[in-house]
Design a protein around this nucleic acid. Sequence first.
DNA 1: AATTGTGAATTCCTTCACAGCC
DNA 2: GGCTGTGAAGGAATTCACAATT
Lengths: 226, 226
Amino acid sequence: MKTEKISELTIKRLSIYLRCLKELADSRVVTTSSQTLAEQFQLNSAQIRKDLTYFGQFGERGVGYNVEELRTHLTKILGLETQHRIGIVGAGRLGMALASYVGFDPNCFKVVALFDKDNSCLGMDLRSGVHVHHIKDLKEIIIQKEIVIGVVAVPESDAQEVVDQLTEAGITAILNFAPVRLNTENGIKLKTMDLAKSFESLSYYLSNEATGDKESTVTISGFEEK
Amino acid sequence: MKTEKISELTIKRLSIYLRCLKELADSRVVTTSSQTLAEQFQLNSAQIRKDLTYFGQFGERGVGYNVEELRTHLTKILGLETQHRIGIVGAGRLGMALASYVGFDPNCFKVVALFDKDNSCLGMDLRSGVHVHHIKDLKEIIIQKEIVIGVVAVPESDAQEVVDQLTEAGITAILNFAPVRLNTENGIKLKTMDLAKSFESLSYYLSNEATGDKESTVTISGFEEK
DNA sequence: AATTGTGAATTCCTTCACAGCC
DNA sequence: GGCTGTGAAGGAATTCACAATT
């Protein structure tokens, strides 16, 4: 691996490549090339090669990449060989929805606890099978259940406090759904999924689509804040 | 307004600026400057000025910007003076959670319908007060209820079909929560909020935080796909 | 012949720095 | 003096194009 700093955009594309490789593997494709991948999945072949070489030389000149081998490499690079345990703070509809979210591979991620400050929702959530704990037990449960990712699914007004509590409990990776800028200590990776911002961007498009703007598809991703 | 094409990043920042101005207005601040804004909200003053001047000259040299005035301008630029009506396809937990999401201003966005292919959840959703329609009535209800934004909250396997149906019904702005790349016709703005990708990026961070990576905070946003 | 890996070129975005105006 | 608006500089990300390799 090179020492160069690797951009968030590259990481996000590795996720995409991994998804593409999964699809190819399911179709029993053994070998592929950056060229073929790019055509099939509307990517840029040079970018694929450049992204990959930040982490090693996985291809063979004249041949291409072995699908399973590259898949293994990417899985390892993204840290997806071991399962990450997730705790969700906020047992409202959003928190509950996330707890029963089936979009990700259970080998990689698993929601193991919900937290809320409201006593009325404590106990077992029947649909997801996840226990709802009181927020006062946050640190204890995080340690006990070996939670490494915290999700903030509380209203805007409580979000900063929750981030502080998660940090205090030793969590270093946080996904936030509250539409606010949150302050974090050094060494904490905070990602914010900002629904309001996304809708506002769609609104801008709607107001301007008639006036000649021909831009089209966009995927939510990340840019550096700090 | 200039003819130059305006980047998605600029639009996203306008949302941020608008949020900051709201906060200032609430604190009865009448005038501000790019410098002050930048310090208060950890932005770059030159960027604020540059972003704004794509759309007009809203400031006064030597003085700064009038908070209310700039707020009005940004609201207009982002198309937020009129309410946008939202239809959510998929009445599972995620769809329901989004229907009762309170993170955005009801003056700007309102969820007016849910759709599902499963008959068992048709009828009124009590908590959000939104009616769940059968997907077969999608086009009819979209026209009748003047829906302009479609949200895809169905499993991966159904997402492309839903996008096609929304397009057929005349929807041009779509927010997708399924972790797949979807094909769209020209003139359709599709944004994807990819949970799986975000978690994978956190996973990468967790695997690499020990090895000297000191990067920290990130906000989910958008990069061009097409 | 085909395809990788990678410097060089290009494009896009951010930041600097200052002329122009209040 | 203070602050905007903006051309120029700098930096980052993408794409090109080709030498190296099988």
